[in-house]
């Protein structure tokens, strides 16, 4: 069953700086700074201006990112929930 579908802001709305494997991200629409661990940044990139649910995100990021989890789709869905609460992705 398809879960909720999300979209993230276009890439020019965020500014990222890598710091030791983490990403410090400035989100222009909110003026807020976030510190993200993988796969947060990869999920945002996969949804930048492009709608998708957890399965679609998984398909998009698995090409160049190895998600070490028993149930990768569930792990992505959990991260999507956190990113939604932070305002970095929204439901459509």
């Amino acid at each position: 069953m398809a879960g909720p579908r999300y979209i993230a802001d276009p890439e020019d709305q965020v500014q990222s700086v890598p710091l030791e494997g983490l990403i410090v991200l400035y989100h222009r629409p909110s003026g807020m700074t976030h510190l993200l661990a993988p796969p947060g940044p990869q999920i945002l990139a996969a949804l930048a201006g492009e709608v998708g649910d957890a399965e679609a995100v998984l398909a998009r990021i698995s090409e160049h990112f190895d998600l070490a989890a028993d149930d990768p789709a569930a792990a992505i869905a959990a991260r999507l929930g956190e990113l939604e609460a932070a305002g970095l992705v929204r439901r459509v």
């Binding site: 629409p29 909110s30 003026g31 807020m32 305002g87 929204r90 439901r91």
Partner: peptide, 16 residues
């Protein structure tokens, strides 16, 4: 300008 960004963001979060 920064205060405006923050205020509009609060409105957006309430909208969501």
């Amino acid at each position: 300008a920064q205060a405006r960004t923050q205020a509009l963001w609060e409105a957006e979060m309430a909208r969501r």
